[in-house]
Design a protein around this nucleic acid. Structure first.
Length: 891
RNA sequence: GGGCGCUUAGCUCAGUUGGUUAGAGCACUUCGUUUACACCGAAGGGGUCGGGGGUUCGAGUCCCUCAGCGCCCACCA
């Protein structure tokens, strides 16, 4: 008897197994031979300050699945973990803490602030990786990296210097997306637009010398920065004014009236005010016409001295005051409700202001072309394929990337200004900078490093190779680069994936990975985005605590398809927890039955029963399907099929049938035990990448029991030390005839159970049956199983090709066999006649349908195998009809 | 303005290369504690696969079209 508890205890198991796996070095690629094929995934580094959410649980589940399978396939599987310094997010967190402590970033200064941030990182940075361990992540923690560690910082400088020398990095004053709250520029990607209720303000632009041009704007405060009024060349309403001068309201600054075909005569008033320093379109028009660019705002979006009497006001206050003043001056026309595409900061949420600012930019066009080529030619495959189009579209229309940020936490830009001028040198280090500068400017040179840092994504864009040692030619880089699969959410396809591909191609002259697998977002059960404000966030740690890691992983892995958002339901998690328990109990059954066999029972060669062959065949099919689906990255379907096999075939049918065979003792019992052990062993291997804990624990129990029982059973290839390093199943056995025979038995059992239920025969009552028909012998060979499964009295069974049917009986015509259940006293003749008549009508309907099909062009045009299937079906139906008709006649 | 996705049982979702009466889990009904498991077992009810058209011997699956929902990209004041 086993001391296994009736219920699988995930709480007790998980950390014990995790520590054991890690201690044994199985998370490291070195657990495989040096010449083993490499399989590598770089983790999408979570923000170092972040807390685990379902998105993390999703990627950990998927990547661990791929890594574990690769490891079992004998590959040198390497999963490189790490975290991202996350410039803005982390800086905000630390600033918040400082304010709470009564100080501020500005007050303590840059040096001290960075010290405080590192301190914060050391204190809280480990939380997220600890949580990932809890999810079973079999990553090689000895290779853990941080985007701001020394090695990666070196990589960032190297990349910057190379880009600069390639002429792809430049500094310039352009209109950038300015975040007034964070006081930094952000990239186009970090701006999110949403349609928001606003007003469209109509007013008259006075023309010097009389007349006016009506104009509309959503942001009246920008009037202060207007440097032109534009109309369409062929607009009869306004063309007379072209070339004249307009006067900026309230400021009375003189500005030209110009013609430009960009102006849409149909929209608004058909005339346009131009503010080149505060609007992207106007910036382009301003450049085109050589207009002045007047910046009217400070870094905090208050109005500067160029705003005249409005200087010092916030942008909102200025809008109100200016509009009120214009109203008083009789310049306004009206205000209209308007839905405006409002740009907001991805981080802070405040409205982004287009602002003229000197920043560092990266011309990504050449690299983008290479990235496009890599996907077009298939060097890189995107799963699911439809994201090719998104990729194509974004990279084709890519614009320069603003890479400088006015933050303190991040990689400082390796640019040094010389002697307080705008001249600069670019260098890998301070020493190198001085060296270069002295050569050029003499020994008395002073250098000042650019105060800005790089966009966080600049460093994460180097991740797949920087984590392996680039720019140095390390052993890891040679062995594990390019990596294999980049698995991440589709929401960071542009932010991160595209940039890794571009920088990989640029710096390593190679693709960083051959496959991009994109998963969807995890939403709540109603399909809403999880958010703190909605209060619908499901914390993975809570789920894990209640249902176990395996239940959460299996749910995330089998609830959807690649690239598709999935709605997480706790009901599903619960039923997957039950699945783990079911597996546990399959092993418990096997283990508690080992004493029914002993070593002496072992046959020279196994003789498999119909059921044995059937389950081995089904195992083979499942293995084949799973492998095919894995290759196609259809992990969800693979998992579902293994689940169906284990629960629906193995537990529900084979284990039940095995009970009979085990009780027979001798070689039959031994063989049955070997099949039970083999099938469960193989299925546990297939499931291990999905649900590592319960499979390992169950497998260890099974192994321990079978090895100590000394019955002479051993899996092919012997017992490995652990499931995590066991060989991945590929072997396939086929027994098509046994499948037909066992399925016939299943059909018969179901028919009898159904008849019993309809006649209200209690399960405790054993009944008798007569089974006849041409295939009766195949049932006779499975007599014991039939009796057990259908709850029949074994000694009262009649199974023969020819047999006299009992007088009063329920008839179950199944085609090549017919069963009669003598249920005298429970079913009368009239009832049975009614039931049979109904069934006969149904059968005849089906015969009509199938024979109609076979008499249609289908018979000629469909593949022979498909046609034959229909013919067989028809034959079964015909036989059943004859049987029913005869029986009805005799009743 | 472009592009993408979704619409299948009451709910949440599968359905891999088109193969002929559409599947799972949960929920529901009835029965059951036969020593693996009540985190269980057995039997059942429930869907004209969003609408319309087309291709095909055959369409949930491919094509066109319409509708609803969602997402991404885009400089209309």
């Amino acid at each position: 008897m086993s001391d296994m508890p009736k219920t699988y205890e995930h709480q007790e198991t998980e950390s014990r197994l995790y520590n054991w796996w890690e201690k044994n070095g199985w998370f490291k690629p070195e657990c495989r031979p040096d010449d083993a094929e490499a399989f590598v995934i770089s983790i999408p580094p979570p923000n170092v300050t972040g807390a685990l959410h379902m998105g993390h649980a999703m990627f950990v589940s998927l990547e661990d699945l791929m890594i574990r399978r690769a490891r079992m396939q004998g590959k040198a599987a390497l999963w490189v973990p790490g975290t991202d310094h996350a410039g803005i997010a982390t800086q905000l967190q630390v600033e918040k803490m400082l304010i709470k402590n009564g100080t501020s970033r500005q007050e303590i200064g840059r040096e001290e602030f960075l010290d405080a941030t590192w301190e914060w990182k050391d204190k809280y940075g480990g939380a997220i990786t600890k949580q990932m361990r809890g999810l079973g992540a079999s990553a090689d923690w000895s290779r853990e990296r941080f985007t701001l560690d020394d090695g990666l910082s070196e990589a960032v400088r190297e990349a910057f210097v190379r880009l600069y020398r390639m002429g792809l990095i430049y500094r310039g004053e352009y209109l950038v997306n300015w975040s007034p709250g964070l006081q930094t520029a952000v990239s186009d990607l970090e701006v999110e637009t949403s349609e928001e209720k606003a007003l469209l303000y109509f007013f008259n632009y006075p023309v010097k010398g009389g007349g006016s041009i009506p104009v509309a704007t959503t942001r009246p405060e920008t009037i202060l920065g207007d440097t032109a009024v534009a109309v369409h060349l062929e607009d009869p309403r306004y063309s007379q004014y072209i070339g004249q001068t307009a006067l900026v309201p309230m400021l009375n600054r003189e500005i030209p009236i110009i013609a430009d075909e960009y102006v849409d005569r149909e929209f608004g008033t058909g005339a346009l005010k131009i503010t080149p320093a505060h609007d992207h379109n106007d910036f382009d028009i301003g450049k085109k016409h050589g207009l002045d660019m007047i910046n009217i705002m400070n870094k905090d979006a208050t109005i500067n001295e160029n705003g005249g009497q409005y200087a010092g006001l916030t942008r909102e206050a200025c809008r109100d005051k200016l509009w009120a003043d214009m109203k008083a001056a009789g310049l306004t026309i009206r205000e209209e409700d308007y839905m405006r595409q409002t740009p907001r900061s991805q981080r802070g949420g405040e409205i982004i202001e287009p602002l003229l600012s000197k920043q560092w930019f990266c011309n990504v066009k050449p690299a983008a072309d290479m990235a496009l080529e890599a996907v077009r030619t298939g060097r890189i495959t995107i799963v699911p394929e439809r994201f090719n189009k998104v990729w194509e579209n974004w990279l084709t229309n890519i614009r320069p990337w603003c890479i400088s940020r006015q933050l303190w936490w991040g990689h400082r830009i390796p640019v040094y200004y010389v002697n307080g001028t705008d001249e600069f040198v670019v260098a890998h280090s301070d020493e190198e900078a001085y060296e270069i500068a002295r050569k050029q400017y003499g020994t008395a040179v002073t250098l000042e490093q650019d105060p800005d840092v790089l966009d966080t994504w600049f460093s994460s864009g180097l991740w797949p190779f920087s984590t392996l040692g680039w720019p140095h030619d390390t052993a890891d880089l040679r062995r594990f680069y390019p990596t294999s699969v980049m698995e991440t959410g589709y929401d960071i396809l542009f932010f991160w994936v595209a940039r890794m591909v571009m920088s990989g191609l640029l710096f390593t002259n190679d693709i960083p990975f051959h496959t991009i697998y994109l998963h969807g977002l995890v939403r709540d059960e109603k399909g809403r985005k999880m958010s703190k404000t909605l209060g619908n966030v499901t914390d993975p740690l809570d789920v894990v605590a209640e249902y176990g890691t395996d239940a959460l992983r299996f749910t995330l892995l089998t609830s959807g398809t690649p690239g598709q958002d999935l709605n997480l339901s706790l009901d599903k998690v619960a039923s997957n927890r039950n699945f783990g328990n079911k597996i546990w109990n399959m092993a418990r059954f096997i283990i508690t039955n080992i004493d029914k066999v002993n070593g002496a029972d072992k046959p020279a060669a196994p003789v498999y029963s119909t059921a044995d062959q059937w389950i081995l065949h089904r195992l083979g099919e499942t293995t084949e399907n799973a492998n095919r689906l894995f290759e196609a990255y259809l992990f969800g379907e693979a998992g579902r099929q293994i689940n169906d096999f284990l629960w629906g075939d193995f537990a529900d049918w084979y284990v039940e049938t095995a009970k009979v065979q085990l009780n027979e003792g001798g070689a039959t019992a031994w063989t049955t035990m070997s099949v039970l052990a083999h099938v469960l062993d193989q299925a546990l291997r297939l499931l291990h990448p999905y649900i590592p804990y319960v499979t390992e624990e169950t497998w260890q129990q099974l192994k321990a029991a079978l090895t100590t029982a000394d019955i002479g059973y051993e899996p092919a290839g012997g017992w490995p030390e652990a499931l995590i390093i066991a060989e991945w199943p590929t072997a396939v056995e086929k027994y098509p005839e046994a499948v037909t025979d066992y399925e016939r038995l299943q059909e018969l059992v179901r028919a009898i159970r159904n008849a019993r239920a309809e006649a209200n025969v209690p399960p405790s009552k054993l009944i008798t049956a007569v089974v006849t028909g041409e295939k009766a012998d195949s049932i006779a060979a499975q007599q014991g199983a039939l009796a057990f499964l259908a709850r029949l009295e074994p000694s009262a069974l009649t199974i023969a090709a020819q047999a006299t049917p009992p007088e009063t009986a329920v008839t179950l015509p199944l085609g090549d066999i017919t069963a009669y259940l003598p249920l005298a006293g429970m079913v009368d003749v009239a009832q049975e006649r009614e039931r049979l008549t109904k069934e006969l009508a149904e059968t005849e309907g089906q015969i009509k349908r199938v024979s109609g099909l076979l008499n249609s062009p289908f018979a000629q045009k469909a593949p022979p195998a498909v046609v034959q299937k229909e013919r067989d079906k028809l034959a079964q139906l015909e036989a059943a009809r004859v049987e029913m008709a005869e029986r009805l006649g005799s009743l």
